[in-house]
Write a protein that binds this DNA or RNA. Sequence first.
DNA 1: TGTACATCAGTGAACGCGCGTTCACTGATGTAC
DNA 2: TGTACATCAGTGAACGCGCGTTCACTGATGTAC
Lengths: 234, 234
Amino acid sequence: MPSERVEQRREGVREEIKQAARRLMAEHGTAGLSLRAIAREINMLPSGLYHYYGSLDDLITALIVDAFNALADALEAARETAAGPGSAAQLTAVLEAYRRWAMTHPTDFQLIYGNPIPGYAAPREITVPPVIRGFSVIVGLIENLLQSGVLEAAPPYDVIPPEVEARLQTLIERDGYPVSARALFLGVVGWTQLHGIIMLEMFNHIQPVIGDVETFYRAQVINLLKTLGLKTAI
Amino acid sequence: MPSERVEQRREGVREEIKQAARRLMAEHGTAGLSLRAIAREINMLPSGLYHYYGSLDDLITALIVDAFNALADALEAARETAAGPGSAAQLTAVLEAYRRWAMTHPTDFQLIYGNPIPGYAAPREITVPPVIRGFSVIVGLIENLLQSGVLEAAPPYDVIPPEVEARLQTLIERDGYPVSARALFLGVVGWTQLHGIIMLEMFNHIQPVIGDVETFYRAQVINLLKTLGLKTAI
DNA sequence: TGTACATCAGTGAACGCGCGTTCACTGATGTAC
DNA sequence: TGTACATCAGTGAACGCGCGTTCACTGATGTAC
């Protein structure tokens, strides 16, 4: 029976390995990650790493799960500290936290939303739960706004295409989203609109055109909520 | 003096090399591209490729330029063949062609808008012109709609933040966009909104949620134009 | 508290593999008369 | 049209490099009495 103390130290080394991995991905891209480079970075031989991760793919999976959880943490933190709980401002704060996390953790964001790493396939049963955790923060707030009447889905978003609605219901039941199909639908629409800005900023495609992306993003968040049917000013 | 016939054959081999490169990137990701694998693919030794491209980086640059030009070709083709020249429907046809090209050429799209290839930096003076070519198709149509009054920038898009306006003017002068700052601004707003859908579809993040992305995208295009201030129905 | 023992973290060497780029070369192809 | 020559596409070998994973091992650390 390995003592808790021993297990803690093992966990510490695992953390050290992941941190080295993140540093290296920041430098060489997510596809440039290598066990040998990590081993070099932490002064260990490559073979030593196999005491902590069964293979490079296992390590990548751990990094992806960490990334989704860190994103979810950031969103939850923004939700808790935002002024005006239950207001639209709380939602905008969370949406701004989404972009901010992406920009402060570009490597992790690329790992979860950029090009997949060649030869690696994420085991869905492991990666999906933390994805849901993060997205739930956003759609949960939308649900609140809908229920309190601060948000009332405006045309054309008051109508969900029937096939989409069926799929959303399936998702809600299977993955346990604690929200209505309407909230999920509005969440997805908003997600797709904001995701584009983040991706373009991440790879420097948009800065030459509009300069201060943070301001642009904030404006787009507000426009988005109005378009979706926000009843109040922010 | 190399005859035209000789030059044509060289160009043919260059094309063969690029096609093999695209096949390989489709299989192993943009970061997995290798000269040796290309050489194997076309039954040549690695060293032979240096008669056609000075280095792997030169080849990547050629692939990127090709991709931007192919995208611009697709947009121009859509513009020419669209029903109702000068109408909003022509613009929606071009915007749908944008997504369609991305989905039928995922590797090329990832090459130009996805994670950069580790260690490679695109020479801007070479890659920028074909970027402008493509984007000009979209903003050119927006300009037409603005001038004919079919589109009138609706609030809040009737106001361009002054710093953004200044930057857009610089861009228009330096890169020779044949449009107004207003058209460019609306183009950028639309671009960011649609880009997110395409990126999420490309890596399969959105299909599980909404299913038929093509229909979703088309709806979003129409909603976008209405939000920007379209005066007519589509 | 002190000792005997087991665990297992990390070593070191090796496996078979792939990579970009260089260089001297050969022989087919194209050119010039 | 036929011949002599030059070009240069593609070969073959080599350079020094990095990769993931395996295996037998050693010795420090932690455990049990």
